[in-house]
């Protein structure tokens, strides 16, 4: 079976560069899947969880928005931050979630509502990967 190349890069490092069989990514307009032979495609990503299959097993990666480009059986993901499930610091994510939730609950005019809800979305999707691989 033809393989897909998956590259996930952030400004700080190359998070992942592997041959995989399937990639599912959280597009801005909904989740999309990529199999080998996909047509060239560029999509914006939302905050969420990307997963890929390698040797029949699913793996999960958190991405904080960005872009995905599919061309010639290569999927390139550009994200501002990305972490594989086993790299995530869950206690930190939990703290971030509480902080963001408190900000949203406070309904304080000074607080940036948009920023807080983004932070909440990020921490919730990080936490959703607890126990995953």
């Amino acid at each position: 079976m033809a393989a897909l190349r998956l590259d996930i890069v952030t400004p700080d490092c190359v998070v992942l560069s592997k041959d995989v069989e399937y990639v599912g990514a959280p597009g801005l307009l909904g989740e999309f899947g990529v199999l080998p032979g996909h047509i060239p495609f560029i999509s914006a990503l939302s905050v969420g969880v990307l997963h890929y299959k390698r040797e029949g097993k699913s793996h999960y990666v958190f991405v904080s928005g960005g872009f995905a480009e599919v061309s010639e059986d290569t999927v390139t993901v550009l994200a501002e931050s990305a972490e594989q499930a086993h790299q995530i610091d869950f206690s930190r994510a939990e703290e971030a979630r509480k902080r963001a939730q408190a900000r949203l609950d406070a309904k304080n005019e000074d607080h940036d509502f948009k920023r807080a809800s983004f932070a909440l979305a990020r921490s919730v999707s990080r936490l959703s990967l607890r126990g995953r691989d």
């Binding site: 801005l28 060239p40 495609f41 560029i42 999509s43 914006a44 480009e69």
Partner: peptide
């Protein structure tokens, strides 16, 4: 050389891309 499919449309994609360009 490649004709991509864009999702969302180019204008909205730019909305996401250009602010990041500044940051880069």
């Amino acid at each position: 050389t490649v004709d991509y499919i864009y999702e969302p449309a180019v204008a909205e994609l730019l909305n996401e891309l250009l602010p990041r360009y500044i940051k880069v």
